[in-house]
Amino acid sequence: MIRQLRILLLLVKMHIRSQMEYRGAFWLDRFAQILSYGSVFATIAILLARFETLGGWNFPELALLFSFQLLAYSLGAAMSFVQLRNIEILVRLGTYDTLLVKPFSPWAYIVFSGLNIGYVGHIILAGALMAWAVAAVDFSWSVSAALYLVGAVISATLLTAAIITMIGATALIWVRSNHLFSIFFGFWELTRYPLNILPGGIQIILITAVPLALTSSVPVGAMLGKPIPILGDWAGPVALLAGPAWVLLAMAHWRYATGKYQGAGG
């Protein structure tokens, strides 16, 4: 076990070095990411300048929601998105078979050998915006509220990584699964807004089948005392438990998909 951990840490170190080989280009790309997502938030700010509130959420509250959503996604996707998106390519080319003979989990190798530090731009923007929003929002902070916020971010991070893992693992069954990421991001973009402004059917989907609302407006809304559709008073506990629960579901799906895998030739 210790030897395997050392190998995985070495893989992470090697991958980070390769990404940082051209540091100027790396940080220029991160700056572009900050500008890109900053422009998205600027659009929300423009709406608030005209209408003052959005679904009962004011500007600092929406800033907290946006930063929470971006931070949780960035942390979760750094451990999963690019790596799991590439499973389809590995399966089609037949190179996934080589991972099955390595002395540790194919999932662990894929994740740690491709740990994406490119999300640091997202994290910088989300962290700075969250720090401002925490100070600006009209909310009486306490130790329990701060602990809830940290726990909710961790749960949302796990939930994001779990869903992406399940999408990637589906390639082991269907060979192609990357089209599912388009659906994922279509719903994910909706979660930077309060859940209550969306149609009822979309609300149900974002809480159940594609529970991305649990990575944004549900935990933040529960903490701020906002009314949460469908979940009501259960919103806070559900948001905390969703991440670990979906990790277990993703583990089961990975084992099932691995059992169905038949190689590139079917």
Rank of each mutant, 00 (worst) to 15 (best):
M1G: 12
R3A: 15
R6S: 12
V12Y: 04
K13C: 05
Y22D: 12
Y22S: 14
R23G: 05
A25P: 05
F26I: 10
L28R: 14
D29Q: 14
I34P: 05
I34R: 02
I34S: 10
I34M: 15
S39H: 01
V40Q: 11
A42F: 12
T43Q: 06
I44R: 01
A45M: 10
R50G: 00
L62S: 11
A63F: 03
F66N: 04
F68E: 03
Q69F: 10
L71S: 04
Y73N: 10
S74D: 07
L75N: 04
S80N: 12
F81D: 04
Q83M: 08
N86G: 06
I87Y: 01
E88I: 01
I89K: 14
V91I: 13
L93H: 15
L93R: 10
T95F: 08
T95P: 00
Y96A: 13
T98G: 06
V101K: 09
F104K: 11
A108W: 14
F112D: 05
F112N: 08
F112Q: 03
V120W: 06
W132Y: 14
A136Q: 07
V143P: 00
A146G: 12
L147A: 13
Y148F: 14
V153G: 03
I154C: 11
S155I: 12
T157Q: 03
L158P: 00
I163H: 06
I164S: 09
I164E: 05
T170W: 09
W174M: 11
S182F: 08
W188R: 15
E189V: 15
E189G: 13
N196T: 05
I205P: 03
L206I: 07
L206Y: 01
L206F: 07
I207K: 01
T208Y: 08
V210T: 08
T215K: 06
P219T: 07
P227M: 08
I230G: 01
L231I: 05
G232R: 07
D233K: 15
A239D: 01
L241R: 00
G243A: 07
A245D: 03
L248F: 11
A250Q: 08
M251W: 07
Y261Q: 05
G265F: 11
